[in-house]
């Protein structure tokens, strides 16, 4: 499964990049600078998808006590945090020439930042507990609490700024994009998604192996007999 996902991700990514950097026309307002959205938007989408996957896996692990699900949830966290950081960094790089500032207290930016803090809290909690089983379940509770809170945070942040000041920021409309830009964007999203799947599976495999390192079946796979 992992090679399949990685290869598909590589193909989609390559096609998306060619389309994004070579074939898509420059934007009439933003020139070439807009091309960063081909990385930015997939990263931002994946940052929330990763949280959803993490929370689902955590819930599954908590309810049915599946170690594999906990391993998947734990592997999602750091990747999700990286996607969130990537979205923030590319967003601010894009914001500098376009908005004239690296950081704007825009609702979307702010809720993305809070999402990053949630990820960091999750990882912090996990690393603070030595016992794996306990760390699994405690961080799963936190992931679920976060999932309930995320929409509230999102809407409160939206509401917070929309009442403060009217924004004159550029916004991406859904349909305001010609197919020559939309296709590479979708391809890049697919590539990011497949890449995410491949990495999560790889990391989860590593995590499962590490957890079960005392188990007999691993010794049989590796060809080492336990002493």
């Amino acid at each position: 499964m992992i090679p399949w996902l990685s290869w598909l991700a590589a193909i989609c990514g390559a096609a998306g990049l060619i389309g994004a950097l070579g074939l898509a026309p420059p934007d009439y307002q933003q020139g070439e600078g807009y091309r960063i959205i081909f990385v930015h938007v997939p990263a931002a989408v994946l940052s929330t998808v990763a949280y959803a996957v993490m929370a689902t896996a955590a819930g599954v692990g908590l309810i049915w006590r599946m170690n594999v699900a906990h391993a998947v949830a734990a592997s999602c966290a750091s990747i999700g945090a990286w996607f969130t950081a990537l979205a923030l960094v590319t967003g601010s790089l894009w914001g500098r020439p376009m908005w004239g500032t690296y950081w704007e207290w825009d609702p979307r930016l702010t809720s993305e930042l809070v999402l990053l803090f949630l990820y960091l809290g999750y990882m912090g909690l996990r690393s603070a507990i030595d016992d794996t089983a306990r760390a699994d379940r405690a961080s799963a509770v936190l992931a679920l609490v976060g999932v309930i809170n995320l929409p509230i945070i999102h809407y409160s942040v939206d509401w917070w700024n929309s009442l403060h000041q009217g924004h004159t920021l550029l916004k991406f409309g859904k349909a305001s994009m010609p197919p020559s830009m939309l296709t590479p964007l979708l391809l890049m999203m697919l590539a990011f998604l497949l890449y995410f799947g491949a990495i999560v599976l790889t990391r989860a495999r590593g995590a499962v192996l590490r957890r079960e390192r005392q188990a007999r079946w691993i010794g049989e796979i590796v060809g080492v007999t336990a002493p």
């Binding site: 809070v114 803090f117 809290g121 909690l125 603070a128």
Partner: peptide, 25 residues
Amino acid sequence: LTLGLRRGGVLLALLVLPLAVPVLI
């Protein structure tokens, strides 16, 4: 969640503050 952890204090802040954002706003 941080019950009985050695480094509970700072971690507690890291866990609770993002969740408290709506209340603050």
